[in-house]
Simulated assay, not measured.
Amino acid sequence: MINPIPLYQEMYRQMGPQYWWPADSKMEIVIGAILVQNTNWNNVDMALTNLRDETDLDIKQILKLSVERLQSLIRPSGFYVNKSRSLRAVLAWFDQFDCDFDKMSAEYGNGLRKTMLALPGVGEETADSLLVYVFDRPAFIADKYTRTLFTYMGFRGLKTYSKLQKRIILPESFTYQDAQEFHGLLDEFGKKYLKDKQQFKDSFLGDFDKKLLTIN
C-alpha cells in the first residue's frame, strides 16, 4: 500500500500552492470536467468560451440548446457527439437539485460516487474530480500524469486508474483542500517533468526515496 503524504509535502515545499481548478464557478468545473476528457485544456477553453458567449454557462440555457447547436459549440473539445450526450445528462442531473451541492451530497451519501459513475460519459477520474472540486470531499485523483509519476518512481502494476487508487491510503486528516492542491501539484509537475523518464530523473523528485511512501 502507498501513503502519498510525504510526496505531497515535498511537492508543496518545492512548488508551492497551485490554486486549482481553473474556473469561476463550480458549474463551470462540472462542464470543464466533461469537456476535458481526452483533450487538453486549451481546447476546453475554446469550447467553454463558446458556451459562455451563448448561454453564460447557465445550465438551464445549455439544456435548452438543440443537440446540433450544443455539438457545434463544444466541437473544439473533440468527441463532441459523445460529450454533448454526457453533458446534457450530467447537467440534467444537477438541474434536478437546482445545483444545490450540499443537498445532493446529503441525498446520495456514500453512494454519490457510484451514482455519478452511472451517468453517461462519467468515468472514475471525472467522478473523483467532481467529488473533490464540486462536492468538497477528499479523494485521490489517479490521472495519467499521476500514474506515470508513480511508475517512474518504481511502483509496479499501476497502468489503470483503479489499480493505483486502490493502493493509496489517505489519512483521516486529508481534506478536500489537500486533495485539490495535490491534484494541481501532480498535474503541474507532469506538464514540466514527465515527458520522458530522463526528464523525471533530472527533476527534484528524481532521487525521492519511494520507501517513504510504502506501507507494509
Rank of each mutant, 00 (worst) to 15 (best):
I2M: 01
N3F: 13
P6M: 05
L7Q: 12
L7F: 08
Q9N: 15
Q14A: 13
M15E: 15
Q18S: 05
Q18A: 01
Y19W: 09
P22F: 11
A23H: 06
A23V: 12
A23P: 03
K26D: 13
K26C: 04
V30I: 15
A33P: 02
I34W: 05
L35Y: 09
Q37V: 08
T39Q: 06
W41T: 07
N43E: 02
L48G: 02
N50G: 07
L51H: 02
E54W: 04
T55R: 06
L57G: 07
D58V: 08
L63R: 10
L65A: 02
L65D: 12
V67Y: 07
V67P: 02
S72F: 12
P76F: 08
P76G: 08
S77G: 04
S77E: 07
G78Y: 11
F79A: 06
Y80P: 00
K83S: 05
R85H: 10
R85V: 15
L87D: 03
L91F: 10
L91Q: 09
F97S: 03
F97H: 11
D98K: 09
C99K: 00
C99D: 14
F101Y: 15
D102P: 00
D102L: 13
K103Q: 15
K103F: 13
M104L: 11
E107A: 10
G109A: 02
N110C: 05
L112K: 10
R113F: 12
R113W: 00
L117M: 13
V122G: 04
V122A: 03
G123Y: 11
G123F: 06
E125H: 05
E125T: 07
E125G: 00
A127Y: 08
S129M: 09
S129Y: 13
S129P: 00
Y133M: 06
D136K: 12
D136R: 09
R137M: 14
A139D: 15
A139W: 03
F140K: 08
A142L: 06
Y145R: 07
T148P: 01
T148C: 01
L149W: 12
L149I: 11
F150T: 01
F150V: 06
T151M: 05
Y152M: 08
Y152K: 00
M153T: 04
M153P: 05
F155L: 01
G157T: 03
T160Q: 12
Y161W: 00
S162K: 14
K166T: 07
R167F: 00
I169G: 00
L170W: 09
L170D: 03
S173R: 09
S173T: 15
F174I: 08
Y176A: 12
Q177T: 08
Q180I: 04
Q180A: 12
H183Y: 13
G184K: 12
G184W: 11
L186D: 07
L186G: 00
D187Y: 04
D187A: 09
F189T: 07
F189K: 11
F189R: 01
K191C: 04
K191V: 12
K192V: 11
K197W: 00
K197S: 08
K197T: 04
Q198M: 11
K201R: 15
D202T: 01
D202C: 01
L205M: 14
K210M: 14
K211E: 15
K211H: 12
L212V: 06
L212R: 15
L213T: 08
L213R: 10
